[in-house]
């Protein structure tokens, strides 16, 4: 299968690779996929007090398209509000990276990773608020 130039570019020079402290209350972590299925993405966000995503990091076990999808996702969500980031749909990733039909699941996984990271951050914040009001 021939890869699109954008997939190759991201896979060779992935953006925002790394790990944030998952115990930091301002960090949300999304770990999606399964090793047995051939792809696992971990996407993390660090959210400022203003509700803006200050930083995003990822690590991915998967094919070039999976790596590119998660790399692109971190680029897109940085500087966005949680609601804006949550609104990113997988078909925008498909379009941007020119993914063929067999690779659409990579973009779905990236969308799931964003949503799971945001949900993790929100549940941490809710837990903290609940603890404060006690």
């Amino acid at each position: 299968m021939a890869y699109s130039e954008k997939v190759i570019e991201h896979a060779e020079n992935p953006r925002n690779v790394g790990t944030l402290d998952k115990n930091d209350p301002n960090v949300g972590t999304g770990l999606v996929g399964a090793p047995a299925c051939g792809d696992v993405m971990r996407l993390q966000i660090k959210v400022g007090d203003d509700g803006i995503i200050q930083d995003a990091r990822f690590k991915t076990f998967g094919c070039g398209s999976a790596i590119a999808s998660s790399s692109l996702a971190t680029e897109w969500i940085k500087g966005k509000t949680l609601d804006e980031a949550e609104a990113i749909k997988n078909d925008r990733i498909v379009e941007e990276l020119n993914l063929p039909p067999v690779k659409i699941h990579c973009s779905v996984l990236a969308e799931d990773a964003i949503k799971t990271a945001i949900a993790d951050y929100r549940s941490k914040q809710a837990a903290r608020k609940a603890a404060e009001t006690k």
């Binding site: 992935p14 696992v40 991915t60």
Partner: peptide, 8 residues
Amino acid sequence: RDLSPLYE
């Protein structure tokens, strides 16, 4: 492997 959450 530096890119792999599983290796980490």
